[in-house]
Amino acid sequence: MPRKKELSFEESLEKLEQIVASMESGDSSLKDLMANYSEGVQLGNNCLKALEDAEKTMDLLVREDNKKVIKQELQIEGE
């Protein structure tokens, strides 16, 4: 199933939870069941992958100086 845009981790997880809930409530056609299954597996794998390789973010030391936001890299003592 082609996706229009890349879903965020949260959106993917929420979608996966909805799919599982709707499948568990029953009443879907075999076609829907299979479509949901493959979409759900895809979402689950995306989520797990996202957990593993999220981009590294820099921790920041922030403050305001003369109405300007100053951001520096945060160095934790002893790290």
Binding site: L16, V20, M23, L33, G40, V41, G44, L51
Partner: peptide
């Protein structure tokens, strides 16, 4: 674990 559990439930539902 939650995601793996969801996937398992997905498979079991199918």
């Amino acid at each position: 674990r939650h995601i793996v559990n969801l996937k398992a439930r997905l498979t079991s539902q199918v």
